[in-house]
Design a protein around this nucleic acid. Structure first.
Lengths: 342, 342
DNA sequence: CATTGATTTGATAACGATAAAATATTAAAA
DNA sequence: TTTTAATATTTTATCGTTATCAAATCAATG
C-alpha cells in the first residue's frame, strides 16, 4: 500500500510525542484543545490514514467479519450478502468474503485464512459433503464467534439462522395434494448430506405420509442444487415408463427446477399439464418462467440481516446465548403447479 | 477472536527461541530438519494459526484486496465479483467487499476504511454523482494500487477494465435502424455524470447521425440504472402525444428496460409492435421476459477476471504500466426489438 | 587438536499503534 | 506565594511477527 504517514511523523512535524497525536486523533480526554486542533489539521494536511493493522495488533480486534459461502450465483446468496452488508455497515464492520465453491477443502482453507486474518467473527453457510464436524468443533471451542446460516451445522453450540425448510417443503407438497388432488408425487432432492437437502426431503415425505399417499423409491432422485443437476435428475425420472410417471414433482430448489422443466420440455412434455413442478427459493427468475414457477419464497435478505445481527451481538457480548433462529417462508403460488390465471 | 496460540508459546513449550519457530513454520533454510519437525508438530498440536495482523505489520502487506461496488443486486456486479474471486483465490488474496449504494459519500467512507485496513490494492467501480476527482487523484498519487472497472474514472493514471460501451450502444441502435427500418428512436439514458451513461448515450447518437435520423430532445430522457428509474423515464416519454411517440427505445441497461416495458404494458401498449425496446447488460432475466429482451451481452465474469489480474500485476510489480482494457460485448438479438421467431 | 567454514540458533530491534505509569505544566485554593 | 489539585504530555512497554546481526554448535580439514 505504499509508504503511509504514521503517527510518529505527525508527532515529529509538530514537536510533540506520538502519544499526544494518538490521543488527539481519537478524541480522548486530557488533550488541550489547541493541541488537538493543531494535530487534526496537520494529520489532514499530511493525508494520514490510521493503520488498522497496528491498531488491531494492540486491541486484538479487527472490525472485520469473515463470510463463507458455498457458492455465489445469481440466486440466494448474493441477496443474503446484501442483508449481511446492511447490518455490518451500520456497525462499521468490514466483510471478508470467501466462496468455497461447494468444496469442503476450500471451505476449510477459507476459514483458516479468515482466522489468520483475525476476523472478529465468522458467518458460515457450509458446503456439501461434510461428514467430519471436528474442524468446526475445535474452532468454536477455541472461542471464535461463529454464526451459521442457511446451511447449518447443529449441535456445536453455535447460533444458526435458517429457514423452516421442513415445514415449507411439507406445505408446498400439501398444496399439490389438497388443491390439485395429485396422488403421485416425486421429489428431486438435494445431496442428502446437506441439512437443507435432508430437511426438504423430510417435509415432502411427511406430507405424503399424512395424506397416505404411495411413496415410491423410483420417484425420489438424489441430485444437487444447480440447474444441470435438476436437468439430469428429471432425465433420470423420465426413464421410467410413462405409466409410472408421477403427476407432480417437488424439486429441492428453483435452479434445479429450471433444469427439470427444461428436461420436460426437451421431451415434449408440458408443465403443468403433463407434469406439475414446484421449486424452492423464489429465485428472481421464477415469476418469469413459462409457466411461472410455484415455489417457496425464502426471505434471503432477512436471513442475512438476522445472521449478521446475531454474530455482532455474539462478538460484542461473549455471554450472548446461542440460538437457532428460523425465518419463515411464504408459499408463492404461481402456475407451474397447475393453478390457473397467471 | 479469543486468545490464540502465539509463536512464543510454542517456543517456550519446546525450549527454543521464537525466531526458530518462525523460521521452521515458514520453511526457511537454516533450520535443522529435526527442529523443524518438532516445531511443526507442536504447532499443529497446539492449534496454531499465524497472526496475519502481526505479519502484515512487519511486511507491510496484507494479501487483501478491497472491492468497492456501487450496488449489489442480482445483475451485473455479483457476476463480476465471481470473476474477481476466481483470480484472487488462486493468488491467495482475500476480498474485502464494500457496497457504496450509489452514494459517493459512502464510497469515500468505504475507500478510506479499506485504506486503513491497509489493503494491498483497490478494485473500484465508482458510484454516480462524482464531480470531484481530487479524492482519487490523491489516493493514486500516494502510490496505492488501483484498478477501476466498468464505471471508470479516466485521466488519473490508473488502469481501467471496461466494456466497449459506446460502440456496443452504436451497434444495437444500428440494428434497430438497418434491420427494422425504425427512424424514430428514443433513448432512456443513465445519469450523465457516470461514464457508462455518457458512453452509451454517445453510441446512440452516433448511430442516429450516421444514418441521418432526426434527433429529438424529447426523446432523450435522463434517468438511472434501476427498474423504477426506467419505469419513470418511460412514463415521462409517454406524456408526449401519440403522434410524437418513437417507434423504438434504446434503454441504458436491462433493469431500466424491464421498468420501461412494464410502463408500456401498464399503458396498454405492446412490445415490440407499438414500441420496440432494447437494453444493455444481458441480465439473467432478459431471455425470460415477454417478449425476450434484445440486449447487449456484457461479459461480466471476464471483466472481473481481467480487473483482478491487472490489479495483482500492479501490486506485485510497481512498474506495471497502466492500461485501459476493453472487453468486447456481443449483441443478443431476441424478440423485443421486433425480430421474430422467439 | 586447533582452525576454518558452514550450519543452526538466539538476542535485539522494529513495524505502528496504544495502555499504563511517570512527569510536567497549569490553574485554583490556602 | 506556596501548596494542592487538575490537566496535559511524555516515557516505557507491549501486541505477534520477522530482519538483522551476533553467537553458538558442528563437521571437516590440515
Amino acid at each position: 500500500m505504499s509508504s503511509e504517514v504514521t503517527l510518529k511523523e505527525i508527532a515529529e512535524a509538530l514537536g510533540v510525542s506520538a502519544m499526544t497525536v494518538s490521543r488527539a486523533l481519537n478524541n480522548r480526554d486530557n488533550v488541550d484543545e489547541n493541541t488537538r486542533k493543531k494535530v487534526v489539521s496537520k494529520a489532514e494536511e499530511m493525508g494520514y490514514t490510521p493503520n488498522y493493522v497496528a491498531k488491531s495488533l494492540v486491541s486484538n480486534k479487527t472490525f472485520t467479519i469473515g463470510v463463507v459461502l458455498p457458492e455465489i450465483t445469481h440466486a440466494f446468496f448474493p441477496e443474503v450478502v446484501r442483508g449481511i452488508e446492511e447490518v455490518t455497515n451500520k456497525s462499521n464492520y468490514q466483510l471478508l468474503l470467501t466462496n468455497a465453491n461447494e468444496q469442503f477443502i476450500r471451505e476449510k482453507k477459507a476459514v483458516n485464512a479468515l482466522r489468520s486474518q483475525r476476523v472478529d467473527g465468522l458467518l458460515i453457510s457450509t458446503s456439501i459433503a461434510i461428514d467430519d464436524f471436528s474442524f468446526y468443533k475445535q474452532i468454536i471451542k477455541s472461542g471464535t464467534s461463529v454464526v451459521f446460516f442457511d446451511r447449518c451445522i447443529e449441535g456445536l453450540g453455535a447460533s444458526c439462522v435458517s429457514v423452516n425448510d421442513r415445514t415449507s417443503s411439507y406445505q408446498i407438497t400439501e398444496h399439490l395434494i389438497t388443491e390439485h388432488g395429485y396422488t403421485k408425487i416425486a421429489h428431486l432432492s438435494g445431496p442428502s448430506n446437506v441439512t437443507i437437502g435432508k430437511e426438504r426431503m423430510k417435509g415432502y415425505m411427511e406430507a405424503l405420509e399424512k395424506y397416505e399417499l404411495p411413496m415410491n423409491d423410483q420417484w425420489i432422485i438424489e441430485g444437487g442444487f444447480q440447474e444441470d443437476k435438476g436437468y439430469k435428475s428429471m432425465k433420470k425420472l423420465l426413464e421410467l415408463s410413462e405409466e409410472e410417471y408421477p403427476e407432480a414433482v417437488v424439486v429441492v430448489n428453483d435452479p434445479a427446477a429450471f433444469g427439470a422443466i427444461k428436461a420436460l420440455k426437451d421431451e415434449g412434455l408440458s408443465v403443468p399439464d403433463d407434469m406439475a413442478v414446484v421449486g424452492f427459493t423464489d429465485d428472481i427468475r421464477a415469476p418469469l418462467l413459462h409457466p411461472p414457477l410455484t415455489t417457496v419464497h425464502q426471505p434471503a435478505y432477512n436471513v442475512g440481516q438476522k445472521a449478521a445481527k446475531k454474530l455482532i451481538a455474539t462478538i460484542e457480548n461473549k455471554d450472548e446465548p446461542a440460538e437457532n433462529i428460523e425465518v419463515l417462508t411464504t408459499l408463492k403460488i404461481r402456475a407451474s403447479c397447475g393453478c390457473g390465471n397467471f
